[in-house]
């Protein structure tokens, strides 16, 4: 079960490199969040730690529903050219993603990171998610994809916390959910303003400040 979910998370992250339209990323992020919430559920089932269940419900609510909805609304409202634009070609970025995934797996298994009893499977996946999220932020030209990369990194960190410590204390977990939600809203607001001022979301145009 854990292996299956881990694989699903991995595939959903790799799929972010396969998209042709930006709006596809919202669906993938929602799927990723559903899988994340499933990991928390499985861990709750195995350990009986009740706050894992609460975390699972909130992941579903915030990360699988609210955040993709906000992102989708932003994309729909801005009505940008929907195709993704990368600095590299489609195949090269997929290749780099796979290399990064392999590297992430290798690093995670060689670091001897401490992990909780039921979390071993997820640790390499979470490291890979953080790596690939960072790569998405660098690779894409559209500013909105930096937001998508950021959410992927956050999801990876959520998984790290689960894999090595069965999640953070509940109050802190709530705080983190709140922050992630608010930061996605602020990302949306700034994207609106950027689009109406620059008439584009291309980060190459946003390079006026130097020195």
């Amino acid at each position: 079960m854990a292996l299956l979910i881990g694989l699903g998370l991995l595939i959903s992250t790799i799929m972010l490199f396969q998209i042709r339209k930006i709006s596809d990323s919202c669906g993938i992020l929602a799927m990723q969040a559903v899988l994340l919430s499933l990991t928390a559920c499985v861990m709750w089932f195995k350990t009986g730690i009740s706050h894992l269940l609460v975390a699972a419900i909130f992941t579903l609510l915030v990360k699988a529903i609210l955040i993709p909805a906000i992102l989708y609304y932003t994309i729909w409202k801005i009505d940008i050219k929907r195709e993704v634009e990368r600095f590299t070609t489609h195949y090269i970025s997929l290749l780099i993603a796979l290399v990064l995934a392999a590297a992430g797996y290798y690093i995670a298994s060689n670091l001897n990171l401490p992990s909780a009893k039921f979390g071993e499977t997820y640790l390499p996946v979470s490291v890979i998610m953080i790596f690939l999220g960072t790569f998405i932020m660098i690779d894409h030209k559209k500013a909105i994809m930096q937001g998508v990369g950021l959410i992927t990194i956050e999801n990876g960190i959520f998984l790290v916390a689960e894999a090595i410590a069965y999640g953070m204390p509940l109050v802190v977990e709530f705080g983190i959910f709140f922050d992630v939600l608010v930061s996605v809203i602020v990302i949306g607001i700034l994207l609106f303003r950027i689009h109406s001022t620059f008439d584009s979301l291309n980060t190459e145009k946003m390079q006026n400040l130097k020195g």
């Binding site: 700034l190 950027i194 109406s196 946003m206 006026n208």
Partner: peptide, 10 residues
Amino acid sequence: KRETALEAAW
């Protein structure tokens, strides 16, 4: 909402 300000904020 100037270009430079939005670039800095982002």
